[in-house]
Simulated assay, not measured.
Amino acid sequence: MEEKKVNIRIASPEDAEKLLAIYAPYVEHTAITFEYEVPSLLEFRERICHVLEKYPYLAAEVDGQIAGYAYVGVFHDREAYDWCVETSIYVDQSCRKMGIGGKLHHALEEVLKLQGILNLNACIAYPEEEDEYLTKNSVEFHRHLGYDMVGEFHNCGYKFDRWYHMVWMEKMIGEHRSGQDFPKNFPQIREEAESILSKL
């Protein structure tokens, strides 16, 4: 079977309905996200706008249809953490095993490097034993991408009448040095990011 081309572009608030359709099943049927209720379309659109004020929010398209998305958020509010972000990736459940998650993450890394981000942190729900709501696949996915396990919090997430652990994984994508420049906000490097994405 011929591998389908995955195009990565910057998402926009107008994509909110399609992105929310991808996210909603994760809320309703999995413990991958600890969110209980599917956000409204308005709230989800506002989340996209908020991310784009500072960070990239990317969409993956296959045959012109959005099949996944990735974005980052603040790791911690204080300035000393400005070089660190928390990553999130969601792929349409009908489009798994197509390499979309890996391609989204690669694109995300390239854009974050432009900004001057150094540390990628992934907060991942983790089961004591795999069940119908949560497997250990996300940890394996991040390991494959070069993340290392750096911490585990026990029985800290409660969903579907059961308790889940949460783990932190980390990947370094830049050099840590003295005299470090502060990262740029995404709008400052957007044009360069669009150029890079067009070549991936």
Rank of each mutant, 00 (worst) to 15 (best):
F44H: 08
Y147F: 15
E37S: 12
L134V: 13
K159D: 02
G174S: 13
A67N: 03
E61Q: 14
A80T: 10
E175Q: 05
I89A: 03
A59G: 09
H29L: 10
L20W: 12
A193P: 01
Y36V: 12
P127N: 00
I22Y: 03
F186L: 11
E140K: 14
I124R: 02
E17Y: 10
K97P: 01
K54Q: 14
L134E: 05
I124Q: 02
C156T: 14
C123T: 10
A16F: 13
D148Y: 01
C84G: 10
P183H: 05
I117S: 07
I66N: 01
L52C: 01
C49F: 11
N7W: 09
G116T: 10
D82Y: 00
A67W: 02
R47T: 06
I124N: 00
P187K: 15
E129M: 06
V51E: 02
L104K: 02
D82R: 15
E192K: 15
K5T: 11
L112I: 09
S40R: 06
T30E: 05
K54A: 13
H76R: 15
G99R: 00
K184P: 02
H29R: 14
F160D: 01
K5I: 15
L41H: 10
Q115W: 04
H176T: 04
V27T: 05
T135A: 06
Q180S: 06
Q188P: 03
E28C: 12
K199D: 07
E191I: 04
D148M: 00
D63C: 09
T87D: 14
K159L: 04
E35G: 08
D131C: 08
E35M: 11
A16D: 08
K136N: 06
D63Q: 14
Y81K: 09
E61Y: 12
S178K: 13
R78A: 07
K4T: 07
L41G: 04
V27C: 05
V91A: 00
K199S: 14
I173C: 09
A107P: 03
L19D: 01
D15E: 11
L41W: 13
L42A: 15
E17T: 14
H29Y: 12
E28L: 15
L108R: 04
C84K: 10
I124P: 03
R96G: 00
H106I: 09
S195E: 14
A31G: 05
Y69F: 15
L58W: 02
Y57G: 00
I66P: 06
L52D: 02
P127R: 03
E46A: 10
E37N: 14
I8N: 07
D92M: 09
S40P: 00
K5F: 10
L114Y: 05
G73T: 15
G99N: 03
Y23P: 04
R162L: 07
D92T: 12
A107F: 04
V85P: 07
T135N: 09
G157F: 07
W83K: 09
L108I: 08
E110P: 00
D82L: 13
R143V: 04
Y36Q: 09
A80S: 11
V6Q: 04
I100T: 02
I66T: 08
G64R: 08
D92E: 07
G102T: 13
N185D: 11
M166V: 15
G116W: 01
A70M: 12
S138G: 03
Y26K: 08
L112F: 12
L108T: 01
K103I: 13
D161M: 05
Y81N: 08
N119D: 11
